[in-house]
Design a protein around this nucleic acid. Structure first.
Lengths: 138, 138
DNA sequence: GATAATTGTGGATAACTGTGGGAAAAGTAA
DNA sequence: TTACTTTTCCCACAGTTATCCACAATTATC
């Protein structure tokens, strides 16, 4: 079970350390793919299998269904953790999520999400305010 | 299992490298044919057999289905990988998919698709936006 | 609080692979 | 045949990626 918010930097070689707390649970390989709100999602091997199961047998002749499969499958990349627990972020995913240098990794129970730090800050501030909007300003 | 998005160039001799990750799984020969949305599809030997099975399941008396089968079958070509993992793209397929120099190869579980890079970018950007459309603008 | 262990970050080196080009072989046309 | 184009096979090189290691800063332990 993954929880919490962690800040890391992507280095010049596009490497990103995953929180050391999570490494045992993540295993040697993970699957990274596109998430909603232009962030990335990291699945464990098992988590990914489950995800694939939901895709199920798609009718290959349907452009609509095929389009969906394209986004999910072509977006996904299996990446190995190096000896120090880092993964490589493929270019196209880095671009998709608009990563600058600093990112936020957050635990979401079964999976992780990776956000560009600035985007996360803005997003979470907004969410915090929404949650507290009934409260008086002080 | 094929996943991810890779960019390659077709050289002057119409050769195209397939992602090195995939070569073991692809084997020495693959089948390349026309796909939906003016892209090309690459099957492994086994994948192609399966595909043939599915085509056989279609009602051959239906002009629609028969047309589909014609395009796929008449479009198909068995091509071998050279020592460096490259295949030759036949002229008529190159024309069909409107390849300029740069193409995108994407993994779709059992098969690969090859797109002209520019076309892919436009397509996938649109799909990405669709996936994120629930998001509020600010 | 001091020492030891862990971990985030950056580099260096070695291996791999994308891409281009050349030579040999095979096909074509005169 | 000869001259010329096209295809096939092989290799070279540059740029990228993988692997290993170092250092500093943080965290844990006693």
């Amino acid at each position: 079970m993954f929880t919490g918010e962690y800040r890391y930097k992507i280095d010049v070689k596009k490497r990103l350390a995953l929180p050391s707390k999570f490494r045992k649970e993540l295993g040697a390989k993970v699957v990274i793919t596109k998430g909603i709100t232009k962030c990335l999602v990291v699945y464990t091997k098992n988590g990914w299998e489950e995800m694939l199961g939901k895709l199920g047998g798609l009718p290959i002749t349907e452009p609509e269904a095929r389009g969906f499969a394209r986004v999910i499958l072509a977006g996904a990349m299996e990446v190995g953790l190096d000896k120090l627990g880092r993964i490589l972020i493929p270019d196209y995913l880095k671009k998709y999520a608009d990563f600058k240098k600093e990112v936020v990794i957050c635990g979401l129970n079964k999976e992780l999400e990776i956000w560009d730090a600035k985007k996360w800050d803005e997003y979470i501030t907004k969410q915090d305010e929404k949650m507290n909007k009934g409260e008086k300003k002080n």
